[in-house]
Simulated scan of single mutants.
Amino acid sequence: MQNTFIYDGSFNGLLTAIFEIYELKIKNVRIVAKHYYEASFFEEYHEVITNEEKANRVWKAVIKYGKPIDAHLIYRCFLSEINGIEQNLFNYIKILISKKQSIAKDYGQADVFHLAEVNKKIGREKHRMDAFVRFRKTKDNIYFASISPDFNVLPLLEKHFQKRYADQLWCIYDICRNYGLYYDLNSVKIVHFDLPENILNTSDEIFQKEEIQYQKLWKNYFESTNIKARANQKLHEQHVPRRYWKYLSEKNLLNW
């Protein structure tokens, strides 16, 4: 019979599940996030209660036996939120602990190769968020940007934007996952808001009028400098995929 460990979807929850699998010496296991779990008659399930101490012990083992590249790979792939990624991560950690050395380049291992491919997708999504995030100044003098990436890359954006906009108040909010990063000129904090449904639309109730006017000017400039006869739509969409246009004021300011 298969043993299924159900965790809360957090990174510490996943590490806690891995600790308990080792602690109980259970074989034939799978790990699944609570929001993906579907009950089956042919399994025994274990509900995991996230425990920071247990999670830290697993993470310390990863750091001890692996290299920074292993830790980065594990965390970044966890952020993909791909259904079933937990099994690949568990297998990766199990092999790492067994070999007591880095396996990040051991592409002969199916799980390592799969995670390397997932990591590439995470890297592309992060890079595009770095490039396509557009801030708008609110009436509270906070530069606000909303995003809805395919993967949960918001934690990976912190360093880039803190360094680039160190002298400004800003907030980047993931409207799909309902949390954001807020920089108060000293540190970055995780925040949760009850945002209005029209937050993606330009609104003078939230944003400064000067900001709206500036974005309209920028859109007009973009349109006036665009030479339609030389346009290469296919190439353009390769560099700026259509799903990112909603972030760009020069693309579709009035219909975000």
Rank of each mutant, 00 (worst) to 15 (best):
Y7T: 00
S10C: 02
F11T: 00
G13E: 01
I18E: 00
F19I: 03
E20T: 04
Y22C: 02
E23G: 08
E44S: 05
E47M: 09
T50Y: 08
N56R: 10
L73P: 03
I74D: 00
Y75F: 05
S80N: 08
N91D: 12
N91T: 11
K100R: 15
I103W: 15
A104I: 03
D106V: 13
Y107N: 04
A110M: 03
V112L: 03
F113Y: 13
L115Q: 03
E117D: 10
K120H: 14
H127D: 13
R128E: 08
D130Y: 15
V133F: 09
R136M: 14
K137R: 10
F151V: 07
F151R: 06
N152A: 13
F161P: 12
K163G: 12
A166C: 06
D167Y: 10
Q168R: 14
C176F: 12
N178G: 12
Y179P: 09
D184M: 08
L185D: 05
K189H: 05
I190R: 13
V191Q: 14
F193N: 08
N201R: 08
T202W: 07
T202E: 15
I206M: 06
F207V: 01
Y214R: 07
K216N: 09
A229L: 11
N232W: 04
N232K: 11
P241T: 02
R242C: 01
R242V: 02
R243M: 04
K246I: 08
